[in-house]
Design a binder for these strands. Structure first.
Lengths: 206, 206
DNA sequence: CAACGCTATTGACGGTCGTTCAATACCGTC
DNA sequence: GACGGTATTGAACGACCGTCAATAGCGTTG
């Protein structure tokens, strides 16, 4: 073994989380052994249990980090027209997935396959993204010139905006894996157009 | 222990798969121990390894069963107008998720969180659902009176139909967990309307 | 009806992996 | 240069996955 390396707790935590994000993007959680992780990070197994209570806690911390990164990076700009803010947020989202495919994969994979805890983190992240749309549209006082449809906050519209979010997630992931000749501007246009499209069938309240 | 029960291989396989579907809908794969499964089924651990080579193979078989169930149940009727066939298939899908939430959950969870193998099974199932839409629309020779838009088979349109499929999956799962006052007919109308909506931004070929 | 054969089923064993904890080594401080 | 705090280790333990020869149920045959 090489000589032991001593780091500050914060550095070590970040290092281990980074390794976790990378490994969990390609391996499922039961394919990832603590031995593998410890060897890649150049530490002993015991150290991981010092920083994270157990394997589940570690997994949760990895997913949490990925979710926080996503929410932070895709924060819409504070100023500008609702349309522009939404477009900027959407583009930031696509760019994030392109640049950070591993992190995003481990978030999605971990969330769907794992604990109730993990799914809750994932739902929180998605809820944050969805809320932004209602906040952005809410500026227009119910009728949003951007979307071209009336967007009021009903269970049905929430359901479909949530669905649009799922669609966006799936389409972007598929596009990153294989663009198939579709350009990024076309992708953004299609996704943006799909939001009013998804809302077109929502019955009017009352 | 109670006296041992002898079954035919097919019965035993079905029983074990049924237990697997149920347990994997609420537990992640690393939370599910062979001991737990064996105890619930009233068998020894060894028997499971007799029928399925190992834990991964068993998980694969469970996901495969759920996928086959889904594809079979949602097969569109062979006759009728494209619109009616699509609507029937969509309603069958919703009914399947309602009636078989556990099976569907274990399919989705297993697929997203698991192996490349598991994801491939899931992609196959989704691909089968997506293909139906193009087949149904193909009857109209490119222009589909049902959807109200031109549906030609391009990478971009494939991407968005796939996205609509992801939206449908997510919306239906959320609706089953909490209908929030949305009726089933409304749900079906919204989802049906969302398909042309999702395609509205697809650029025309050439 | 009794012996037999086929095969579904078991239970104990070995190895891997998650988890714990007392011991150790590095670093700043006095 | 000794000391104290703490990041880090490595051995030990238990749980769980996977294997295999032995066993028991059920149909068959004379």
């Amino acid at each position: 073994m090489t000589t032991r390396v001593r780091m500050t707790p914060d550095e070590r935590r970040e290092q281990l989380l980074a390794h976790g994000v990378r490994l969990l993007s390609t391996h499922s959680v039961d394919e990832l052994s603590i031995d593998m992780l410890a060897e890649e990070a150049g530490i002993s197994r015991g150290l991981l249990y010092h920083y994270f209570g157990n394997k589940q806690d570690f997994h949760r911390a990895v997913v949490r980090k990925a979710a926080d990164d996503l929410i932070g990076v895709t924060a819409p700009p504070a100023t500008g027209e609702p349309l522009e803010r939404l477009a900027a947020s959407l583009e930031a989202y696509v760019d994030y997935v392109v640049a950070n495919y591993e992190g995003y994969s481990s978030l999605v994979r971990g969330a769907a396959g794992g604990n109730a805890d993990l799914r809750r983190i994932y739902e929180e992240a998605r809820g944050a993204l969805t809320d932004r749309i209602f906040v952005a549209a809410g500026d227009g006082d119910g009728v949003d010139p951007v979307l071209g449809v009336t967007l009021v906050d009903t269970p049905a519209s929430r359901l479909m905006v949530r669905g649009w979010s799922a669609m966006t997630e799936d389409v972007v992931l598929a596009w990153v894996r294989d663009p198939a000749g579709v350009s990024k501007p076309d992708l953004l246009l299609m996704l943006a157009a799909a939001l009013p499209g998804a809302l077109s069938g929502v019955p009017a309240p009352d």
